[in-house]
Amino acid sequence: MNWRKLNRAVHRDAGYFCAALTIVYAISGLAVNHVSDWNPNYKIERVEKRFTSIPITSREEMVAALVDRLDLPGAPKSSFRSAPHLVDLFYDGWSVRADAQAGRATIERPRDRALLRDANFLHLNHPKGLWTWFADGYAILLALLAISGLFILRGRNGITGRGLWFSLAGLAVPVVFVVVMRYL
């Protein structure tokens, strides 16, 4: 087998193997790139409620009064006051933040973004341990895909012709960004 044939076979099979995870990482990459504009992991549902203000007493009394006023499903798992009039009530997977004086409460229910949270979990290497090894192998395969891809075609469209210009353009973009953003 000559080296070009081997190169094509490596590129083809590594490509098949990496396809699924590349798509997962690409989707997650788009999602986490815009983390300042949205939450890529959770959709947080917030419901505002008004109630007749309650007197500032002990936390336990205030929690009981809030459960009653806001018609909450029983005592919370835990609670906290960051100030005498600000009470947090924590339930399983959701919480309430109430301003006892202003008679205003926000009920907050975070929900996972279906599949996206799983994609981010893998892409950002939250599992650590074994996944780190797998992700390292995947990264090496990606590099192999890129290098083998350069030598798939011969002639006018290959790396000595059109391919060279596109490869240089692809290299120029990050280089320009680094020079402009870091050194100028």
Partner: peptide, 22 residues
Amino acid sequence: FQSIRFKVEDGVIVIPLEAKGK
């Protein structure tokens, strides 16, 4: 009325939102 912020390095430790109240 007292609490403290426990700050972790981005991406090294990720605290899930579900941890609230625990």
